[in-house]
Design a protein around this nucleic acid. Structure first.
Lengths: 146, 146
DNA sequence: TTAATACCTCATGTTAACTTGAGGTAAAGC
DNA sequence: GCTTTACCTCAAGTTAACATGAGGTATTAA
């Protein structure tokens, strides 16, 4: 009996996203709905949580695409419950850890670099960070000899 | 005598960016050039460092627009030298510090949230972080009472 | 019952940071 | 001198994540 049928307007109001965003999410396969007699969208109540999860993930800098992937990879494609959420948050937490590490390295490099003015050199830690996250391919060569 | 006149191709090769990118940067006012007889772009050697600085800043997540602003705000609109670079990196370092702080808070919130499954509630620290960086206006209200 | 909302679809617009392509000139190698 | 690169300009395409608007139907409130 908790599978109430909510309208787009209601869901939009409750989640703080625009109706067009709901259309968009649906088109992207992130949420689902069925239609009533008059062809209007109806949602189950759990769409609210689903949208919350999407928004939370976005705050972490996760793209809609990979959110979609994550949803797909979850058992039964159901809206995440407590257990699923625990897994999600654990994974996202790790991603965050990596990001933080990356940025910290960069910041510290900056620290070491202040005043050196070495930017145009091949071995500048800022310009050529040994960043294990981003595979940027063979870096550009910036040499200013002669 | 260090103001050699470099061609786009050369600069592109040395910096690892495409010729079209140089056109683009010039159009955005980030770099400058003059033309030779045949209307081809020529650059001073210091454009190399300028591009390095742009790239370094981008790695820090700084937008071209604000890089442009920064350049404009610098004395004489000249290509940054050691002193300028020290200022730049100090400012960017602070930005990084803030980002790191933000992410760390988010991560720790996640930590506290694992297993709580509270996402659809008003006071979830993930969904409603007290994030002093982003002014998101009045947040959405997600209540699931009744 | 009628007017005001709420919805619907489909197409196009938006921002950032570039890339690609078309059509044409200039410079360089042999 | 001829052919191959290298450049030039201007227009349009690309990705992400939606927003906006037009033209039309369905619900809801008085």
């Amino acid at each position: 009996m908790e599978d109430a049928n909510l309208s787009v307007g209601y869901v939009a109001g409750r989640t703080g996203v625009k109706v067009s965003t709901l259309h968009f999410y649906e088109q992207k396969g992130l949420i689902r709905s069925w239609r009533n007699q008059g062809n209007q969208r109806r949602y189950k109540r759990d769409v609210l949580r689903r949208i919350s999860v999407i928004k939370a993930a976005q705050r972490l800098g996760i793209s809609l695409q990979s959110i979609h992937q994550t949803f797909l990879g979850m058992p039964n494609e159901r809206t995440p419950d407590k257990k699923d959420w625990a897994q999600l948050s654990k994974r996202w937490q790790q991603q965050l850890d990596q990001q933080i590490n990356s940025l910290t390295k960069l910041r510290d490099s900056l620290d070491g670099c202040i005043g050196c003015g070495c930017l145009s050199m091949q071995n500048c830690p800022i310009y050529n960070p040994d960043d294990e996250l981003e595979a940027l391919g063979p870096g550009p060569v910036i040499l200013d000899r002669k």
